[in-house]
Amino acid sequence: MSVVAHLPHRTPTLTDTEAAHPPALELTGRRPLTAEERRTAETIFGEFRADGRYREYVLGCLNCGECTTGCPAARFYDFSPREMLQIAAVGDATTLWDAMQEKIWACCQCYTCNMRCRFGNDIAGIISVMRELSVRHGLESTRRVLAPFNRSLTLLMTVGTQVASDMIQPDFFRDWGPFAAAGEKSWDADPHLLRQAIPIDVLQTTTSSWEVSVQTSLELFRIYEEAGVLDMLRGLDPDLTEMLIDIIEERREEFEEARTRYHSQLAAMHGPVATFSG
């Protein structure tokens, strides 16, 4: 990853020499990797250690366990930040691969481990790096993990907010009970009416947290294109990516139409509005 590959340098640690000759860890009771999996695992391992953030985030470990102390995930999963840091610091390609199948997704990204770590590691951060890698390499396990996020991902990419009030459908959130959505208290109001009853104009919609102006959404999409996020997504889910591009195309057209419509008003203005083209 080129952009962050040159983060400020730290003195090399023991782990750097080990990176060249990773210790052969024998894990019992696991299915051996296929040749193809092994190749991907080695590639991922190489990219992981070469990422500039690796040196920034993984400093060393006293095995004190204070990171695990407050880790919510460690209480419910076979997972701990200490283990993740150990895997990051001394694990080999296979260990990393194994952790990336399932474990890394247990983390809540709450940053409790970081706040506690007496060595100054950024454990939550290194877990994110592993996650980014598994997305970039389109790992099967990652597809599974991310499947429920398509709706909010679509909203995010094309509108710019990550949530909409109509996401809380009673049958999708049955475990939240009958009062999860506002409409179903003691009165029977339709969701649109309830949104209208919010005293903030841009919130009076059900399909997005707030109405985002078209220009703003297009600017966001431009960022995703330029920063390589779209390419990353394409590797994971080409169909979804194509769909996003189609939606954005429509929004661009809408934007240009509006430009014609508001021509005279815009002409009187300076600044990004006038210069921006979707």
Partner: peptide
């Protein structure tokens, strides 16, 4: 006292 028993690997 909340901690981790690092031999049991459990909080």
């Amino acid at each position: 006292a909340t901690g981790e028993d690092t031999i049991l690997s459990r909080p």
